[in-house]
Amino acid sequence: EDPCYDAKQRPRYCIPDFLDLALGREVQASGTCGKVPQKLCSYQDPTNITSRKCLICDQSRAKTSYPPAYLTDADAQTCWKSEAGVKFPKNVTLTLPLGRRFELVYLSLRFCSPRPQSMAVYKSMDHGRSWVPIQYYSTQCRRVYGLPTSGTITKAMEHEASCTDYQTGLKPLTGGLVAFMPLAGRPSARRFEYSPVLQDWVTATDIRVVFSRLHTGQELGMRRKTTFYGVTELQVGGRCKCNGHASHCASMPEGLTCDCRHHTAGPECDRCKAFYHDRPWQRATPSNSHECVACECNLHSHRCRFSMELYALSGRRSGGICTGCRHNTAGRHCHYCKQGYKRDPGKPITSRRSCKPCQCHPVGAISAMCNQTTGQCQCKIGVTGLTCNRCALGFQQSRSAYMPCVRIR
């Protein structure tokens, strides 16, 4: 069963499977511990500040390394660790390129250190050329990020990052979670499929997490130079962006690609496929699949283009213009015969032989063109017949090809 079509093969809104976008992907970390051996202290017990245990981080040995690969491996125990003693305003960043555009559903970080006092999450929609914040976390939003600690998200600000003090607490001292759901609390989330603003809001090609500030050494009960940011797991949940036109995202040599339905094409099903340009492309919604519609070319062309002007004139029903009409046809739908040809009334317009030559007489007719429907050529004075091949009554053939029939005296 194809989720993009119902039992009667009518097109319907469909979305691809939910994916763990971070699993196995490479994360770029700006400051990983152990370039020179360092002592890093963390806690064994999530609630006991005296359960401190210190380890050496040294990248020269695998056993004492805590690389960014540990963020996205399948092992929930391994932990990436930042360099020790990072002090505000210096920060540490984790950057995760996703490889294509996705619609984010959630992002979560599981810590092996205490959660940061301040951190921010950014996204890029252009493969890392520009970044926009999507969430700030801080016990001191105003002081660190210049933002108020957020309350309710209004419709006017539902596409803006807010700052929260949730998930910034010192405890649990280890194993704490910071999770972000880009649609949570947004007024238009219930009608996400109809909200271009939120569709844009959840779209990302890359994710960046910026750790801005650690809890103070005093709060942590240890010396600052042994404190660090530590993350066991970075998870990013989302779906391929396929605009409601695909239920499957296929792994191709160039990366994940939507398996487009509804006669759409492109890596995100973001355009109509060739010859399906009778209506403008639109994202599908649950109430209307907005499938692309084939142009009506009466089997005489397999190419067409879309005209918004014609579409508007037709009352938003049809805007396709056939191009390259064959079999001596012409017109927007290849629905009449081109000049010099006439319709064969015995054949349907879809027939390859629906248009036949006028066969106007080279001397008796004024031109090679004839009436499309009747086939009547335009005759010179004194000439008659469908193809202008005879002299009319009262006329006789002359020797002049310019005036082939003259009146009988």
């Binding site: 007489h361 080279p362 001397v363 008796g364 000439v383 008659t384 017949g385 091949n389 005879r390 002299c391 009319a392 009554l393 053939q397 020797r399 002049s400 090809a401 310019y402 082939p404 029939c405």
Partner: peptide
């Protein structure tokens, strides 16, 4: 009455060579 079709051989093509069909 049906008139006979134009006889192409009767025309003097001297000045209308461009109208003369290829034989």
């Amino acid at each position: 009455d049906v008139m006979p079709t134009l006889d192409m051989t009767l025309f003097d093509w001297t000045d209308y060579e461009d109208l003369k069909p290829e034989s």
